[in-house]
Amino acid sequence: MSKPPIVPETTVAGIAVDPRTLERVIPESRRPDGTVRKQLKIRPGYTPQEDVRRFRGTRQAQMDATSLPKGHVIGWTPAPAAAVPPASKAGLSKAQKKNEKRKEKRKEKRDEPKVKDNWDDEDEGEADEGGAPAPAAAKKSTSGSHSPENPNWAAAPDAQEAEKKDAGADALADKLEKLEVQ
């Protein structure tokens, strides 16, 4: 007779074979508070409800062994994953189509560079992808900004404040020119 394994296999109910006595037991375990539960012997022939298997006749067992997985069709093989085309928009609901458009816009926005390569080029943001500047009619100004085409006097900078800033910048430039590095 062979020896039982060192680490016994347990049933669903937790019953294992004791390697020393070869009796069926529920091994001792530790409670959350740290105390130890005693090892319980299981009388011979007893099978707890958790370990009872569902009765299957010989024909039923044979049918289970030879049956196909759920949803499988005989002779049909799925197409390779690489050849599967993306889902067509014809089968999508209105909300799904809208969500697809949102995803595409988010993806495009993520792909755009956030930092300009050349800060001297002011028209870079207004140029299309080909590098040509966008036509004036295609430019959209926001409602809160001030421009000659769309005057918004509430958002327009005060002319006197702009002159003061320019005068301050000119004075600072003059001071820097007078300084000499020794």
Rank of each mutant, 00 (worst) to 15 (best):
M1F: 12
S2Y: 08
K3F: 02
K3D: 01
P5R: 09
P5G: 12
I6Q: 09
V7P: 00
V7S: 05
E9I: 12
E9S: 07
G14W: 01
I15N: 03
A16Q: 04
A16C: 07
V17T: 15
D18R: 04
R20P: 03
T21K: 08
R24L: 07
V25R: 00
I26H: 06
E28H: 08
E28I: 03
S29P: 04
D33N: 06
G34K: 01
T35E: 12
V36Y: 08
K38A: 11
K38L: 05
G45E: 07
Y46A: 05
Y46R: 09
V52Y: 05
R53E: 06
R54M: 09
R54Q: 09
F55E: 06
R56A: 14
G57I: 00
G57F: 03
Q60K: 10
A61W: 06
D64A: 15
D64K: 04
A65Y: 00
A65D: 01
S67Y: 01
G71Y: 07
G71C: 13
H72P: 00
V73P: 00
I74L: 12
I74F: 11
I74E: 14
G75H: 02
G75E: 03
G75K: 03
G75D: 02
W76S: 00
P78E: 04
P78K: 03
A79D: 05
A79L: 09
A79I: 04
P80L: 12
P80F: 08
A81M: 07
A81D: 11
A82M: 01
A83M: 11
A83H: 05
V84L: 08
P85L: 09
P85M: 04
P86E: 08
K89E: 10
A90N: 07
S93T: 00
S93C: 00
K97L: 14
N99F: 06
K101Q: 10
K101P: 02
R102D: 13
R102G: 07
K105T: 03
E108S: 07
R110Q: 14
R110E: 11
E112S: 04
P113Q: 12
K114V: 08
N118K: 14
N118H: 14
D120F: 02
E122H: 11
E124D: 15
E126L: 13
E129A: 14
G130T: 11
P133D: 02
P135V: 03
A136N: 06
A136W: 09
A137E: 14
A137V: 12
K139E: 07
K139D: 09
K140Q: 06
S141H: 13
S145D: 13
S147N: 15
S147W: 14
E149W: 10
N152A: 01
W153N: 10
A154N: 12
A155K: 11
A156H: 07
D158P: 02
D158V: 06
A159D: 09
E161M: 01
A162Q: 14
K165D: 08
D166L: 12
A171N: 06
A171G: 07
L172C: 11
A173V: 08
A173W: 04
K175R: 11
K175A: 15
L176N: 08
E177T: 13
E177K: 15
K178M: 15
L179N: 12
L179D: 14
E180G: 13
E180P: 02
Q182F: 05
